[in-house]
Structures are given as C-alpha cells and as structure tokens.
Design a protein around this nucleic acid. Structure first.
Lengths: 227, 227
DNA sequence: CACTAATCGGATGACCTCTTCCATTTATGG
DNA sequence: CCATAAATGGAAGAGGTCATCCGATTAGTG
C-alpha cells in the first residue's frame, strides 16, 4: 500500500507537495524548489529554467515534469512566502491594537519584498486567474479592509486612508527593490517609515488627493496593453 | 554646399538629430522616433524593435541604420523628456521658495513617469556609462543637493531628509506605474502627497531610519547580480 | 536477486528577438 | 531627363529560452 496521501489541507492548486512519488522524485523536486528560490532571490524571476535545472543538478525534462510551466515553478517556489503574508495578516487582525497590527503586517511584507527580489517579482507577476490565488487575494483584501477600519476607529489612522493605499505601498516598495538586499532593505525601511508617518493621525495635515483605484488584483501584471 | 550643421549646442552623443542626410532619411528617422515613443509610452521599453519598425512603416534595416543598438533608440526617444527634467530642476533652483521648487520638480518628474511608462523604464534602464548622461546625472545630483539644503535652511524641509530620498521617491514612483496612465497618475499623485507630507517639517515626529545609500546612479539597472 | 515501471538527462524542435546582408528603389544635382 | 550614391526593405543568420521526446537508468517490490 502506498504512502497515505497525508491529507494536506493547505494544498494549493499550484503546489503538489508530495504524493506517492518515488523517493528520488521527491528529492529532486525539493532540490529544484531550493535552486529556484536561491536563483530568484538574487535577480528576480527572469532566470532561464535551464539555469534552475543545472543548479539543481537535474535535467531539463525533470524540471518540466515536476513543474509543467515556468509559472508553476514560480508559484510553488513562493507559496511558503505567500502563506507567511497571510499569516502575518491574520496575526495583525488578532492584535488588540489595530495600528500596531497594521504596522507589523506592512513591515513584514515590505521586508520580505526587500530581502527577496524574486518574491517581489512573483508577487507582481503571479497568474491573475489561478482560482486559489484569487480566493486568497479576496480574503486578504477583506482582512486588510477590516484592519484599516479598526485603526481608523481607534483614531490612530487618518480618516482619509483607503485600503488601496496598502496596494500603493506594496507597488512603491517593489520599485525600490533593485539593488543588493542590503541597500534594498535600507531603502524599503525608509520608504515605509515615510509612509507610516503620513498615515498616522496628525492634526492640521492637508487632505490627500483621491485614492488611486487600485485593487489587490492590480498587483498582478499590467492589464493595460492597448495595442 | 550641404545644409549648414546648424550648431546644435545640446546635441548629446545619443542623439544625432539631423545632418546632411537625404530628406527621406530624415523623415524616416522622425517616424521611427515617434513610433518608438508611442509604443514605449503604453507598455514600457520592452517592445520588439521589429514592432517599432513596422509601426513606423519602414524596414528593420532602416531602424538599425539610424539607431545601431536598441539602447540608442531608447535614448534618442527620451532625450527630450530628460531635458525637460533638467529644465524643471533648473527652474526649481531659480525659485525664491526652495520648498516650492522642490515640490514642483518632484511633482513634474513623478507625473512624467506616471504618464509615460516608457519614460519610467528608460529612466531606470538607460546605459549607466554614457559619458554625456553621467555628466548630466552628476549635475542633477549637485542641483538636488543644493535645493535640499536650501529647503532645510528655510525650515520647510525636515532636517533628516537626505538627497538620496529623492532617488527613493523616484524608484518608489516607478513601482506604481503599472496600470493604465489614468490609474498610474492617480496612484503617483497620492504617493507623492504621502511622501511630501512626511518630508515637510512637523514637530514631534519620530526620526526616520538611516537613509538608504542610494545615488542617482542607482536608478540605473541593478549592479547586483552575484552569480 | 531480478523484474517492472517510474524517473532521468541530454538532444531536439518551435519560437522569438536582435542584427546584418544585398539586390532594388529613390532622392538629388547637373 | 539622367547618372549616381544614398537609402530602403525583406530575407536570413545568430543567439537564447521554453517545452518535448526518447533511450538509458534506477528505485521499489516480490
């Protein structure tokens, strides 16, 4: 009898963690994911698949059998980090102090973007139509809206803050992730500090311009292209 | 006798505006530049050269004779906009109110990035070693430093503002330029408003974290790549 | 130990973009 | 209107990535 399917409840469509595979297949899969994460972290996700395979010490066919498309490899490589983000949001929602929760989740995600260039890229590239991801995004959006509303209610967050401003911050933060991790980290921290300082309630600050109509979905690829 | 060389003083190395070319060559050059600007504005600079040529109604060879490399086309297409930026800085330096000058130059450049996705990309991609551009960048850096110092002196700009924070803003702003021009513009405006609000002098604001060691040169490509 | 089916890896094909080549066309001056 | 050199456009070469195929190998089982 093969290994029991292990009832993994968090098994997303993009990740097919372990099944009744042969031991070497499982092993190679893990090596591929690790090689992908390492390569992506340095220079973003535009790394040739052949490079990933070579670094993992396997052939191209092995890579494509485990991850049929380039996108599925990227999704699998960063599913842990995505889960971390979701967890950070859940934790923030459990915090008694909504402002502290908001700060901590934004700090966490910004740091993750700055430390891992691939994560930042994956965050922006990932397939907009994966149903699992769509659901997660919708949940995150709802959670953020709730957090924002609570922080306004306690008077710590300015009243004209809009949930889309979180998306705005994440997009802006992705822009500063272009140098070495050290520089990116310093830049990201400083950007976040500027941002949070403006979001915090202050008296007599002039009103902000209209919120940009950004949804979390807008993080994903430019739906633009009018040619 | 051929047309006099016209003593164009602002003739950068990257632009070879007009010389004793044949009339049709001049014409095609102009069509190419216009096609490039239009294509780049929509979706950034990663547009196949063949597309530019087709839209300009010329063959590939014509494109490559006028602009030997992909980069030279990009540089030529955006040299006007770069000059606009320099002019905006000069004007800001002439303003009696340094804070107003700083705001106006930042507003202008952010708007240009938001309105033209290609400009934003070109701003970040452009060859880091073109001597003309290096000189311009050095000059811009000096001008900005002066403007920043003056605005601090009048007490309008917070004392721990660092000139590299301008680079930080431009990088962050480039991150929000991913949607249609309308959305980008709204997002960019809002980001700038948040940023300026934090930069403005306020009492009792906690100090910012260390400035990121960003130079204007860092706008150009990731010098990272450790593989 | 031997058998079988899953797995592997390098070669290969399809595709795309950048750039060059060359026979043909066209502008320009006399 | 003609001669000539400049300019043109499409075809073709070079290089690189994605994805697939297939003979060889190896893990797992009795």
């Amino acid at each position: 009898m093969p290994v029991q399917p292990s009832r993994n409840p968090a098994s997303s469509a993009s990740e097919t963690p372990v099944r009744g595979q042969r031991a070497d297949a499982r092993h190679n899969r893990a090596r591929l994911l690790q090689a992908a994460r390492e390569a992506y972290a340095l220079n973003g996700t535009d790394v040739p698949s052949s490079t990933i395979a070579r670094r993992a010490g396997v052939g191209a066919a092995t890579l494509y059998r485990h991850f049929p498309t380039r996108g599925s490899l990227i999704a699998a490589a960063f599913s842990e980090q995505l889960a971390e983000c979701v967890a950070a949001l859940d934790e923030a929602l459990r915090d008694d102090d909504p402002w502290r929760g908001l700060c901590s989740v934004l700090t966490k995600v910004c740091r993750m973007q700055a430390e891992d260039r691939g994560f930042s890229a994956a965050f922006l590239e990932e397939s907009p139509d994966d149903p699992d991801l769509r659901r997660e995004r919708a949940r995150a959006e709802a959670g953020l809206a709730q957090l924002v509303q609570r922080a306004k209610k306690t008077g710590q967050l300015r009243k004209d803050f809009h949930p889309s401003d979180v998306t705005l911050l994440l997009l802006a933060n992705s822009g500063v992730v272009r140098q070495s991790p050290e520089v990116s980290l310093a830049a990201s921290r400083r950007l976040l500090a500027y941002f949070l300082q403006s979001c915090r309630t202050t008296d007599g600050t002039p009103p902000l311009p209209q919120p940009a109509p950004l949804r979390l979905d807008d993080l994903y690829g430019p739906p633009h292209r009018t040619d």
